[in-house]
Amino acid sequence: MTETQFVKATPPPPLRPLISGISGYRVRSAPGVHRGLPSRSLTVILALDETVDVTFDSGYQQCCTALVGGLHSKPAKVEHGELQHGIQLGLTPLGARALLGLPAGELADTGVDLSAVLGPVVAELTERVHSATTWTDRFDRLNDGLLRLAAPVDFPAPELAWIWRRMTQTDGHVPVAALASDVGWTRQHLGARFRREFGLSPKLLSRVMRFERARRQLVAGTVASLADVAADCGYSDQAHFNRDWREFTGVAPSRWIAEELPFVQGAAHLGDAS
């Protein structure tokens, strides 16, 4: 028996600077492995049945019912059983500070049990979400809990806030030297402050953002060929695109399209909660 359900929700206005997206899922299929790919968002997963089993490229493994994974540049291995049922959040670096009380840099290339960060409130929130009978009610209960957790916060320096906005607005296409010049920092100072806050170097995260844009285009099916995707996303040529794709997914683009794209497109073409 195959069951596939994906649902999306829009965070309420106070949470939008902190949460880049909310999605619910209930999928029943053969057990297997998915690749958790790099992006500009941290990932929070609340499992409503079974557990989340993730292995990061660093070798760090985590098995829990509520997980937060940091920014990373290598694919994570996500093992699943017959039933996948839960809610996934995209957490911005500012959201990490506001909701978790720590900079994104402390979670880079790893994942931790969310309860280890937030304590018993996680089990209470998960139980409230699990007991809801509709996706709309689940999302309402989740957002209510997140609003209670959120603390007023900002990045430790306005320069970092400006740099992050500029990078996200351009999908990482502004050179690091230009970013440093625009805020009056040296490139070395920018690199040190950036890695401490976000966990990756500005150059590496710029590459992740460019890759993320290419992945969005493939999932949306709006670009005719891989060569067109490469050109539109600013890669110097197809070989450059292929190298980055292999680095960030662990496989060639053609293999990822064959093995992962159908599932990812299902998750991307979500229905609204009702």
Results as ranks from 00 to 15, higher is better:
residue 1 M to D: 06
residue 5 Q to S: 03
residue 6 F to Y: 09
residue 6 F to L: 03
residue 7 V to S: 03
residue 9 A to T: 04
residue 12 P to Y: 03
residue 14 P to C: 03
residue 15 L to P: 00
residue 16 R to M: 00
residue 16 R to Q: 02
residue 21 G to M: 03
residue 21 G to N: 01
residue 25 Y to I: 04
residue 26 R to E: 02
residue 27 V to C: 01
residue 34 H to I: 09
residue 35 R to A: 13
residue 38 P to A: 02
residue 41 S to F: 13
residue 44 V to T: 09
residue 46 L to G: 02
residue 47 A to C: 05
residue 51 T to H: 11
residue 55 T to S: 05
residue 56 F to G: 00
residue 58 S to P: 08
residue 58 S to W: 12
residue 60 Y to E: 13
residue 61 Q to L: 14
residue 61 Q to I: 14
residue 64 C to R: 14
residue 67 L to W: 12
residue 68 V to M: 08
residue 70 G to F: 08
residue 72 H to Y: 08
residue 73 S to E: 13
residue 75 P to Q: 10
residue 75 P to F: 09
residue 76 A to W: 13
residue 87 I to G: 01
residue 88 Q to D: 00
residue 91 L to M: 02
residue 91 L to V: 12
residue 95 G to A: 03
residue 97 R to K: 10
residue 97 R to C: 02
residue 97 R to W: 07
residue 100 L to A: 01
residue 101 G to A: 08
residue 106 E to W: 11
residue 107 L to S: 05
residue 107 L to C: 04
residue 108 A to I: 11
residue 111 G to M: 11
residue 113 D to P: 06
residue 113 D to K: 12
residue 116 A to D: 15
residue 117 V to E: 04
residue 117 V to M: 12
residue 121 V to D: 09
residue 127 E to G: 02
residue 127 E to H: 12
residue 128 R to W: 06
residue 128 R to Y: 02
residue 128 R to M: 07
residue 134 T to C: 01
residue 134 T to E: 01
residue 136 T to A: 11
residue 136 T to Q: 11
residue 140 D to L: 12
residue 144 D to V: 12
residue 145 G to E: 09
residue 147 L to P: 01
residue 148 R to S: 08
residue 150 A to L: 05
residue 150 A to H: 04
residue 150 A to Q: 09
residue 151 A to M: 10
residue 152 P to G: 01
residue 154 D to C: 05
residue 155 F to N: 02
residue 157 A to S: 13
residue 157 A to W: 12
residue 158 P to K: 10
residue 158 P to G: 04
residue 159 E to R: 10
residue 162 W to D: 01
residue 164 W to R: 11
residue 168 T to N: 02
residue 168 T to I: 05
residue 175 P to V: 12
residue 177 A to M: 10
residue 177 A to V: 15
residue 182 D to C: 01
residue 183 V to C: 07
residue 185 W to T: 05
residue 185 W to D: 02
residue 187 R to N: 07
residue 188 Q to R: 10
residue 188 Q to M: 08
residue 189 H to Y: 11
residue 193 R to T: 04
residue 194 F to P: 00
residue 199 G to I: 06
residue 201 S to G: 13
residue 202 P to L: 11
residue 204 L to H: 12
residue 205 L to W: 14
residue 210 R to G: 01
residue 216 R to A: 08
residue 218 L to F: 06
residue 220 A to D: 07
residue 220 A to M: 10
residue 222 T to P: 02
residue 223 V to N: 02
residue 224 A to Q: 15
residue 227 A to N: 13
residue 228 D to K: 15
residue 229 V to R: 07
residue 230 A to C: 11
residue 230 A to W: 15
residue 231 A to L: 13
residue 232 D to W: 13
residue 234 G to M: 13
residue 235 Y to V: 14
residue 236 S to N: 13
residue 239 A to H: 14
residue 240 H to K: 14
residue 242 N to P: 00
residue 250 G to E: 05
residue 258 A to S: 10
residue 258 A to Y: 03
residue 262 P to Q: 11
residue 265 Q to F: 08
residue 266 G to Y: 11
residue 267 A to Q: 14
residue 268 A to I: 09
residue 269 H to C: 08
residue 273 A to L: 06
residue 274 S to P: 14
